[in-house]
Design a protein around this nucleic acid. Structure first.
Lengths: 168, 168
DNA sequence: GTTGGAAAGTCAACAAGGCTGACATAAACT
DNA sequence: AGTTTATGTCAGCCTTGTTGACTTTCCAAC
């Protein structure tokens, strides 16, 4: 058992056994389920799903963002995003305003109704994150974020970081 | 900027601002994309997807596991899992053996071919995890796992922990 | 021994949310 | 004027999840 990939061990914390890595992988898998569980519960029954949650989140986060912008962040096709946005716009949760400088662009904003749903979703998700942070203790938070950042693709990390610095 | 949700700041690490929590949430979202990117790339083109990867992973992890066992771990319906398993069995990646003690049960094992694919998938995923751990540094790894564990649902955490202690 | 119920498998239908390709429109750029 | 860009839309497909209904197998309790 242990270090099945060959090479000698020694618990020098920067030599990482396959077993340590596997635990991290499984933790990531199981934790993501918890991460999405509360919003999923809120959304089930409504006509919406995880894709709607993501759109609401990033529109809330960057009000006035364009469709193209959102596409880049979400990493899906415009057809896929369009289906989601159409529903949100029809139901009056999102407002699509023609750009002033560039009239081809649509700038997206949450309505009162959209903002309300976004808040209930993010409240639930934040509550879980807060509880996890508290349970793990002060030191853990930084490590958590560092590993997650390092796990991203380079292009994703750039998006995350430019987003990170944008105040809400 | 910062602490948009009101309340005073002070970086007392256990007072968590909405902004800190939001960063964690977005990090989780973006990191999960990276987490699945490499296996997804390997599987595209084959007839398989993420669901097949998960089945292969946990069968490799707990050889001889029953279908019911796997259902509980994966958290999907038997119909959904069955479709995935059927494909893997037909293609000779997974072997389904009738239980000796209880002949209703099917015990699942990877074949040579299934083991090969599982290895290539987990090699890729481990490589990314290893790189992330290295980049984040020794201290970060523990914090990462602690927060993820705390983020899981209680029942999921129990599964994770009993799995965690099982040596491979 | 018969029967009740659990484990497993199967069929059918459906939904969400990805994808591609093709095409339309308007606006901006050159 | 012609090209590129931003967006939207139609049609169709795939994966992976769902529910419901039904069968077969087989253990275990009566």
């Amino acid at each position: 058992m242990e270090h099945s990939g060959g090479a000698s061990h020694s618990e020098s914390l920067l030599f990482l056994t396959d077993d340590q890595l596997r635990k991290g992988i499984e933790a990531m898998f199981f934790a993501y389920r918890g991460f999405t569980a509360d919003p999923d519960r809120i959304l089930e029954g409504m006509d919406y799903g995880r894709a709607h949650h993501r759109a609401l989140h990033f529109i809330h986060r960057s009000p006035g963002t364009t469709v193209n912008n959102l596409l880049a962040i979400l990493g899906v096709t415009k057809q896929s995003l369009n289906r989601v946005l159409r529903g949100l716009i029809e139901d009056g949760l999102v407002e699509s305003r023609v750009g002033r400088a560039d009239k081809r662009e649509r700038h997206l904003h949450l309505t009162k109704k959209g903002g309300d749903l976004e808040r209930s979703l993010s409240d639930a998700q934040r509550a879980r994150m807060r509880a996890a942070y508290r349970a793990a203790g002060p030191g853990a938070v930084q490590g958590f974020r560092q590993v997650l950042e390092a796990m991203m693709d380079d292009s994703t990390r750039r998006q995350y970081q430019s987003l990170k610095e944008t105040s809400l």
